[in-house]
Amino acid sequence: MLNISIQPEKIFAIGGFFVTNSLLTSWLVMIFLVMLTFFVFAGLKEVPGRFQAVVEGVVGGLYGLFESVTGERTKIYYPLVATLFIFILFLNWTEILPGVGTIGLEKVKDGAKEFIPLFRPTSADLNLTIALALVSVASIQFFGLRTLGIKYLAKFINLKNPILFFVGLLDIVSEGSRIISFAFRLFGNIFAGDVLLTVIAFLMPLFAPLPFLALELFVGFIQALVFSMLTAVFLNVATSSEH
């Protein structure tokens, strides 16, 4: 009865390509964000209305937030870190929505009935979190290389003395481990929250989930902030030449 699965379930196939429930959710979130963007873009006015003021508050507020970390260079990083924040935030919050994890199909598999939810919070899918971690770490390397040039590589491969050589090796490992830490931090938090909400709803469906919903709202926000802020901090470290 209780459906807890670490991996996303396949729900339908388009020409041999399986669409999972988490991919479907991320598409819906994307469509929502893109439509919102176009709606805002079409209605942009010099004198803002209430809705535009909110959007400006978010966009400008995020800019100020990241500016406190990356300073002058925020202009370059902003699209990356802001999109990370907004996308992850909305993906995280899908777990609060009614119907996510509860609307689904019954499927017979190996003779046993199995419930497959139609939607799954995408942050609770390692495919997404690893993809975002890869983007994040790859852009850290890219901006580091672009800003410092060959000096950036000298951080990793240093033949001047054995200690620095060993430190360089450690740095390579740490860059790799960042992918894992980024990916599993987000996945772990949101997957745990999803499981928690499922279990609580299973045990006592009426009022008990309310505080946990509020908690998950908060966790979703914090995880989005942590992911984007860490990216900003690492970008700042990678592009400053103190080594």
Binding site: M30, L80, I86, T122
Partner: peptide, 21 residues
């Protein structure tokens, strides 16, 4: 799946940058 999510994200970055930020 990983690739799909990656592409999703890149598209989102492009659209949001051009039409929002």
């Amino acid at each position: 799946m990983l690739l799909m999510q990656l592409i999703n994200f890149v598209i989102l970055v492009a659209v949001l940058t051009k039409f929002l930020y």
